[in-house]
Each structure stands twice: as structure tokens, then as C-alpha cells.
Amino acid sequence: MGFEVLFKGKNAIRLIAGLGIAMRISIISVAISIFLGIILGMLMSMKKPIINAIARVYLEIVRIMPQLVLLFIVFFGISKMTGLNLSAEASSIIVFSFWGTAEMADLVRGCLLSIPAIQYESSKALGMSRLQTYVYVIIPQIVRRLIPLSINLITRMIKTTSLVMMIGIVEVLKVGQQIIEANRKASPKAAFGIFAVIFLLYFLACWPISCLSRYLEKKWES
């Protein structure tokens, strides 16, 4: 079936290290996205017309442009237009943060707007200051809604980072191809084994995170 290639030399470790590269890119991008997304989401919930107009255009661009197109624009386009030599990894982090920030901002905005106005009014009536209202009333509720959703964003980010092989980063799929090519004569069925293992590796990386997100959502629902 082609699984024996995995046990030759360091093939299995190389594959996992390849997944590690994809994971590193996604973790850095998620961290940037969550930070910037929260700021942008808060700005958007203030209902200032100019900010909202800009944010809507930005969200619509992210909504309709495939991430791979954005990757191509940054990786090939920017270096051609500005002469700047961005590494493939830097461009992928820029693109995934650009995309993730929009997604995160939309989530934050949705959560903020879902808090009924009566809660702000009640806090005021109870004599709470603005800071107290946010710290004791609004933020605890938002965090509970936001955490499952942002964990979900992490799995989507991990899945999307598989695209980086298309701009030449040697991650798990590329390593898999290299292993298959190197063993073409010795084990011609390696393609099946390697790609099945990569399939499983991605599943094992994302599934626990999805389960955690679903569990937290259920737990905090009531």
C-alpha cells in the first residue's frame, strides 16, 4: 500500500516537521489576526460611517478573493511592483493575517452588537462606570461567545496554510512529494501511502481543536 516508505530513514519525522512549518505560519497569523481583529471589530461596532465604509470594502474583498489569489498578489505582485524581496513565508503570514483579521473583526463586531442595549443601560442605572460596565458585564459575555468562534478560526487557518506549497514553501505536502519522487522505483505505491498519511495528519491536527470549540460552545451556551 505504500506505507513502508514512511519507515525508511527519517521520512516520518520529515513529514511531521513539514506539518510543523505549516502550523508555525498559522499560529503566527492567528496571533496577529486575533489582536488586530479585536481592535478592528471594536472600531466597527462604534458605528462611525467612515470606518464602517472602509471596513465593509475590506471585508468584501476578503469575502470574495480566494486566499490563493491574495498569496499570488503579495508574493509575485508586490515584489514586481515595489522591488521589495518578500520571502514566501513572510508573504504567507501577511496574507493569512490580512484574511484572518477580517474574519476575526466580523466575529468581534457580531458579538459586540449581540449584547442588548438594555445591559449598558442597566449597568449605568446601577451606577457603574464605563470601565466597570465593560470589565464586569460586557467582556465576560463576549469572551464566552468569542472563544469557540476564534478556535474555529484557528482550524480554518491551519487548513488554509496548506496553500503555501503553491508559492514554494516546503511544507508537509511538498515533503510528501519529495519522498514519493525519491522512492519512485523502490515503492511505486508510495503516493497512496504518503497522501493518506498527510490526510490523516491534517485531520489529527484539526479535529481535536474543532471538538474543543464545539465543547466550549455547548458548555457556555446556557
Binding site: 487548513k159 496548506s162 505536502l173 497522501f195 498527510i198 491534517y202
Partner: peptide, 11 residues
């Protein structure tokens, strides 16, 4: 739901 399309297509 927990694997990327690229990996599915390669497989």
C-alpha cells in the same frame, strides 16, 4: 471538514 481541499485533491 477537518482537512484542506488541497490535501483531499492530492489524495
Amino acid at each position: 471538514r477537518n482537512t484542506p481541499l488541497l490535501v483531499q485533491l492530492f489524495f
